[in-house]
Simulated assay, not measured.
Amino acid sequence: MNENERIDNIIKEFDLLYNDAQCSLEYKDPLQLLISTQLAAQCTDARVNMVTETLFQKYKNVFDFAGADIEELEQDIRSTGFYRNKARNIINCCRMLIEKYDGRVPGNMDDLLKLPGVGRKTANLVLGDIFGIPGIVVDTHAKRLANRIGLTQNSDPEKIEYDLMDIIPREYWSKFCHQLVYHGRAVCVARKPQCGICTIKSYCDYYKTLK
């Protein structure tokens, strides 16, 4: 089996298992997704969703966040960790959105990366889920699984992103990364992957080392 066949088989299996895979962050508009993704750094999506349930009732738009008292916002998001940096970035990000983008979240990589607190992971998620522009989102699940399966030999998220771009068909980029998250939570967990029940084990480099 060549590499293209292996990738095709993994995609087919993921489509059977996780055809409806989507972002687990809860949001109603582009700004909410942008902020939720920033909060999700070094934090679980479940915790972020707990925080944003009340956060987005208190801060309803870009102007509310831009004008927020930083110490108050820090306390509002404290449980997500790194709350001082996150609060500062969210406020400065929203101010830049108002000053340079008419208060709207831009729909291209270059402009998104100019925003405080926004890296390629956040930008790709926003582009894929909001604007329908395919992108590879390398979060902790994607990083772990891509290395275990043998889709990359790199540990740097940006290098992993480009490695996956080379082997995954473009139309699958966004969906495939959501599927990696689902598989990472359900089967290929961090501490002890459940290889015995994994339906892609035949295509996985890690599983081969167990034989």
Rank of each mutant, 00 (worst) to 15 (best):
M1D: 10
N2K: 13
N2A: 13
N2D: 15
E3N: 13
E3D: 12
I7G: 08
I7T: 05
N9P: 04
N9V: 08
I10D: 03
E13W: 06
F14G: 07
F14M: 08
D15P: 00
N19E: 14
A21P: 06
L25Y: 11
K28L: 12
K28A: 14
Q32T: 01
L33E: 11
S36D: 10
L39E: 01
A40N: 00
A40T: 03
T44W: 04
T44R: 08
R47F: 12
N49I: 08
M50P: 00
M50G: 04
V51Q: 05
T52A: 08
F56A: 06
K58S: 09
K60T: 13
N61H: 02
A66T: 04
A68G: 09
A68W: 06
E71F: 04
E74Y: 00
E74V: 00
Q75T: 10
I77Q: 12
I77C: 12
N85C: 03
N85E: 08
A87F: 06
R88E: 14
R88M: 12
R88V: 08
N89L: 01
I90K: 01
I90Y: 03
N92M: 10
R95F: 00
R95N: 03
M96F: 00
D102V: 07
D102M: 05
D102I: 04
G103K: 06
R104Y: 15
N108T: 11
N108G: 13
D110E: 15
D111W: 08
D111Q: 11
L113E: 04
L113N: 07
L115T: 02
P116N: 09
G117V: 04
G119A: 05
R120F: 11
R120S: 08
K121D: 12
T122R: 07
A123L: 02
N124G: 11
N124L: 09
L127M: 15
I133E: 15
G135S: 14
V137T: 14
V138C: 04
V138R: 04
A142M: 02
A142Q: 02
R144H: 02
R144M: 01
L145V: 02
A146L: 01
R148S: 04
I149C: 06
I149D: 04
L151P: 04
D156P: 09
K159H: 07
K159I: 10
Y162W: 09
Y162F: 14
Y162D: 10
L164Y: 05
D166E: 12
I167K: 11
I167V: 15
E171F: 14
Y172Q: 15
Y172M: 13
F176M: 13
H178Y: 14
H178A: 09
L180Q: 02
Y182I: 01
Y182K: 08
H183V: 07
V187N: 05
A190S: 11
P193Q: 05
Q194F: 00
Q194G: 05
C195L: 05
C198D: 11
K201M: 00
S202T: 05
Y206I: 02
Y207P: 00
K208P: 03
T209C: 03
K211F: 05
